[in-house]
Design a protein around this nucleic acid. Structure first.
Length: 811
DNA sequence: TCCCTACCGTGATG
DNA sequence: GTACATCACGGTAGGGA
């Protein structure tokens, strides 16, 4: 038989000691399909230079005899092939060694620590990745499969157990001629429990939301029944119905928010307590959880996605949200609002409280669904570009994404993959310490007019490409004419810079396409390449990378610095005044020159840049404000505010954009900056400050504007320094409130009977009925937020706050 | 108890 | 352990006067 299908989930199983890949997908009519494919596990043995053919032949014969046995399974070397390959850009002779079972490759590799073999590689690459690389069965891409139906009892009875429409043993899989659109069936879920801690409480309700599908399941009968809720006799019955509904809906993707850390393990433990099986998998098996710092919940045949994890690694840097909670993220990305619910009520709820609770729970499932739909294009594009299955794509770190992209493209260079670093190697790399990073120019404080900002596009990536900086092109240390130490890199293009050049090229191409045709897919594609390009530099400096090269990372930042300093000199020579520069951007004064002149100059500059380095116009700005540091006269770096010609504000580094300052200070600072930038002077801004000072002194400020939020970054007992937020967290713990690493701790500074003293002795939780301390908010929040801004205009705000220089107020 | 400084810790920039 | 270095700044810890 022959059919088109799209691979969604990958797994493998053993039969008679051999590995078979099991792909779950859909065919073009939407039927769920299982494709079983053969895979012959293999790894590489790179031979020592200059072995004679005779020697190699006898070595091959020796290797062919290797057998290992572990856990009742026997594996042997099935086949050995001799290949001409590249390793880190160098030509090598290598043996491709096929082993019966993937799990025994380590054991076989261990037996090859012999003098003729220089290195053993690729036994540490997961089977599914190797399979995709070798057989080109790429995830979320349409394929044509030719094969035979799997009958009852065949392949370990796979067709009897799996809840799929068709089961096929593949004979040949190739790319489909036509790439149709693919819309996965997404089902979102969310649970509520009476205790947050795993294993402690019970699951009170479960909500499900999908296309034309909306359910709330519960076993709580308090008050009158709601017509949108399904009631069950107990928790166990509810859990069983949940499993049934999941199978009925038949999702490709089951999605939750923080569900790796909460919902799925909670359901699993509730099922265990009730002595039932949470048989969510297409093979009727319960979810499994990978070990690791954060465990990942895997459901066989259905891709379980914890949206929070994908958003955290891939999306977070582009979000304005101060936390990555479902409410804030969904509000920003899809304009969906969470409902309100007072969790303090749990335990003493009446009928209408329950109704609210059910609605709240369902709304969470609904906005999770909407969010999943919204970011589906990004997950799809990431999957197609990196070629790893969706399950990993939605959870992997950025370094893994870069690395997987490399691994899936090495074949084009006939390259054997480098191994993962060992623990010892990681320790060594980490012990090397920091190397010199970017250049930041110290600005002179002041209010400037008519600024121009240039910036390099994907600067570090284009430096890597331009100067060919990578592990495989690193030649070692050398000396320049003056005898200074240098790092040498070969002229011959390495695969890393070459792939990166392609990424940059594709990024530019898809960015243009997006400009012409603004749709979520072209945007997601362009964005994925941008992220890869931006992370490539960090990857080479990352201690856990296969292609770690500290020298390449050092050289990248050094060449970047050299280039930007040269451009700064050229801009100065042209007669402009430089105001600021950080890493890849330069701000300078246009003075009386026209924009055309500036743009022509930019063109001229670009012609002088090496390789693929490219300088862009970031924008023209009407005004810009730079302030001094708090304690010295020197200009502060990474702290400025600009207003563009169409009136848009760009605020960087100021307290306005820092979430660990109270809203009163942040909002006031923002208003002050805006007034000054719009009006070109400080007059009306000063008025606003005075009003706020008065409000504080007369206790007219709402407490919510005084709350300070700080993240708890580690368990409280690990803190050496008892800062205010640690004290607040301790207070919460004493009261039995849930605290966890990563949460935002909220507190305010209140009045106590002692004057002065430590802040931490005056920390109160938001609900404590204590008046706020006027002096603290004046001197530690408002003053520091605006003092330096007014100093630019020679106004001493300290005197005004303390009421010394009343005369000055009215000048 | 006051004052100074080193260090801790968070969260920003690019 | 989960891309990099650079920077600002509040607040505590801890020693000396």
């Amino acid at each position: 038989m022959k059919t088109n299908f799209i691979p969604i989930d990958y797994d493998y199983f053993d039969l008679n000691g051999r590995n078979f890949v099991r792909i779950i997908g859909r065919d073009e009519s939407g039927k769920r399909i299982c494709v079983v494919d053969e895979y012959n596990p293999n790894f590489w043995a790179i031979l020592k230079d200059g072995l004679s053919e005779k020697k190699i032949k006898s070595l091959v014969e020796k290797i062919k005899k290797i057998e290992v046995e572990s856990g009742g399974r026997k594996s042997k070397v099935e086949k050995v092939e001799i290949h001409d390959k590249n390793f880190l850009g160098k030509k090598v002779k290598a043996l491709k060694i096929f082993v019966t079972n993937h799990k025994d490759m380590h054991a076989v590799a261990d037996k090859l620590k012999i003098k003729e073999i220089e290195k053993r590689r690729e036994y540490d690459i997961p089977l599914i990745s190797k399979y995709i690389i070798e057989k080109n069965v790429d995830p979320l891409v349409w394929h044509e499969v030719i094969g035979d139906y799997i009958g009852s009892g065949e392949f370990g009875g796979i067709a009897d157990v799996l809840k799929v429409d068709v089961c096929i043993k593949a004979n040949k899989i190739s790319k489909a001629k036509e790439q149709k659109e693919f819309n996965p069936r997404i089902l979102a879920y969310d649970i509520e429990a009476n205790e947050l801690e795993l294993g402690k409480g019970k699951v009170l309700m479960i909500s499900l939301y999908g296309k034309n599908f909306s359910k709330v399941l519960t076993w709580k009968y308090d008050g009158k029944k709601q017509d949108f809720v399904e009631y069950f006799k107990d928790e166990a019955e509810m859990l069983e119905k949940f499993v049934e509904y999941v199978h009925e809906y038949s999702p490709d993707i089951l999605v939750g928010y923080f569900s790796d850390g909460f919902d799925l393990p909670y359901l699993q433990s509730a099922a265990a307590r009730n002595k039932i099986k949470l048989s969510l998998g297409l093979d009727q098996k319960p979810p499994t959880f990978t070990h690791g710092r954060i465990s990942s919940g895997k459901i066989s045949g259905i891709v379980h996605i914890d949206l929070f994890r994908f958003i955290k690694t891939v999306y977070a840097q582009y979000l304005q949200s101060e936390t990555l909670g479902l409410g804030e993220v969904a509000a920003e990305l899809c304009g969906e609002k969470k409902l309100e619910f007072d969790f303090a009520k749990i335990g003493k709820m009446n009928g209408s409280d329950w109704k609210k609770f059910f609605e709240y729970n369902l709304m969470d499932a609904k906005i999770t669904y909407k969010l999943a739909e919204k970011i589906w294009p990004d997950m799809l594009e990431f999957t197609r570009i990196i070629k790893e299955p969706l399950f990993g794509i939605s959870r992997d770190s950025m370094s893994s994404h870069v690395e997987n992209y490399l691994l899936h493209n090495l074949n084009r260079f006939n390259e054997i993959a480098e191994k993962r670093p060992t623990h010892d190697e990681i320790r060594r790399r980490r012990s090397l310490g920091k190397y010199e990073g970017a250049f930041v120019l110290q600005p002179t404080p002041g209010l400037y007019e008519n600024l121009v900002m240039f910036d390099f596009s994907s600067m570090y990536a284009s430096v890597i490409v331009t100067y060919n900086l990578s592990l495989s092109t690193f030649l070692g240390e050398g000396k320049d004419e003056k005898g200074n130490k240098t790092l040498k890199f070969s002229k011959k293009k390495g695969f890393f810079p070459e792939l990166l050049e392609e990424i940059i090229y594709l990024r530019r191409k898809y960015k243009e396409e997006y400009k012409k045709d603004k749709n979520p897919l072209t945007k997601a594609r362009s964005n994925a390449y941008k992220l890869l390009a931006n992370t490539a530099y960090g990857y080479q400096g990352f201690f856990g990378a296969r292609y770690y090269c500290r020298e390449a990372a050092m050289a990248t930042s050094a060449f970047a610095k050299k280039n930007i300093l040269e451009v700064i000199e050229k801009i100065k020579k042209e007669g402009y005044e430089i105001v600021y520069s950080d890493t890849d951007s330069i701000a300078f004064l246009r003075k009386n020159r026209s924009k055309e002149e500036v743009l022509n100059f930019l063109k001229k500059l670009n012609k002088s840049l090496p390789g693929i380095m490219e300088l862009d116009l970031e924008d023209f700005y009407k005004r810009g404000l730079f302030v001094s540091k708090r304690t010295t006269e020197a200009g502060a770096k990474k702290k400025y505010a600009l207003i563009s010609e169409n009136g848009k504000l760009k605020v960087r580094g100021f307290e306005t954009v820092r979430r660990d300052w109270c809203n009163l200070a942040r909002n006031l600072q923002k208003k002050v900056l805006e007034k000054i930038l719009r009006e070109g002077n400080e007059k009306s801004a000063l008025k606003i400050v005075k009003e706020v000072i008065k409000k504080i002194k007369t206790r007219q400020v709402n407490k919510e504007d005084l709350i300070i939020k700080t993240q708890l970054k580690k368990p409280i007992e690990e803190y050496l320094s008892q800062g205010p937020h640690v004290i607040a967290a301790k207070k919460m713990e004493m009261r039995g409130l849930p605290i966890s690493v990563g949460m935002l701790v909220e507190y305010f500074v209140g009045e106590t009977n002692k004057k002065g003293g430590r802040i931490r002795d005056k920390v109160f939780l938001p609900d404590e009925n204590v008046p706020y301390e006027i002096d603290y908010y004046l001197n530690n929040q408002i003053l520091p937020a605006v003092e330096n801004i007014f100093e630019v205009f020679n106004i001493k705000l300290k005197d005004i706050i303390n009421g010394y220089s009343q005369k000055k107020l009215f000048t």
